[in-house]
Computed example of a mutant assay.
Amino acid sequence: MTEHDYEPIPGLPGLLPPGERIVWQGAPDWRVLARYAYHTRAVTAYFGVLGAWAVIAAVARGIRGPGDLSGVALTAMFGIIAVGLLRALAWGAARTSLYTLTNRRVVLRIGVAFPKCINLPLAMIGTVGLAVNPDQSGDIPLALTGERRLGFLALWPHARPWHVAAAQPMLRALPDAAHVASLIARTCLEVQPSGQVTQPVSPAAPANGFGQAVAA
Rank of each mutant, 00 (worst) to 15 (best):
V132T: 07
V132W: 01
V132Y: 11
P134G: 02
P134A: 01
P134C: 07
D135L: 05
D135Y: 03
Q136R: 08
Q136M: 13
S137T: 12
G138M: 01
G138C: 01
G138F: 01
D139I: 08
D139V: 09
I140H: 04
I140L: 04
I140S: 05
I140R: 05
P141G: 05
P141T: 00
P141D: 01
L142V: 13
L142G: 07
L142M: 02
A143R: 13
A143N: 08
A143E: 10
L144H: 00
L144R: 00
G146C: 06
G146L: 12
G146D: 04
E147G: 04
R148A: 14
R149N: 09
R149I: 12
L150M: 11
G151F: 09
G151M: 07
G151A: 12
F152A: 00
F152N: 05
L153W: 15
L153G: 10
L153T: 14
L153Q: 10
L153M: 14
A154P: 02
A154K: 13
L155E: 13
P157E: 13
H158T: 03
H158C: 10
H158E: 10
A159R: 03
R160N: 06
R160E: 12
P161K: 11
P161A: 05
H163L: 09
H163G: 03
V164L: 11
V164R: 12
V164P: 03
V164W: 12
A165P: 04
A165K: 13
A167N: 11
Q168P: 06
P169A: 10
M170K: 08
M170E: 10
M170F: 01
L171Q: 08
L171G: 02
A173K: 05
P175H: 02
D176M: 02
D176R: 11
D176F: 01
A177Q: 06
A177K: 03
A177F: 02
A178W: 01
V180S: 06
L183M: 07
I184D: 00
I184V: 03
A185S: 09
A185F: 00
R186F: 02
R186H: 01
T187C: 00
C188L: 04
C188E: 02
L189H: 05
L189V: 04
L189A: 05
L189W: 00
E190H: 11
E190Y: 08
V191F: 01
V191M: 09
Q192R: 13
S194T: 13
S194N: 12
G195F: 08
Q196M: 13
Q196K: 15
T198P: 05
Q199G: 07
Q199S: 14
Q199W: 12
V201F: 07
V201Y: 11
P203C: 02
A204Q: 15
A204R: 15
A205E: 15
P206D: 14
A207W: 06
A207F: 12
A207I: 05
N208H: 14
G209A: 15
G209S: 06
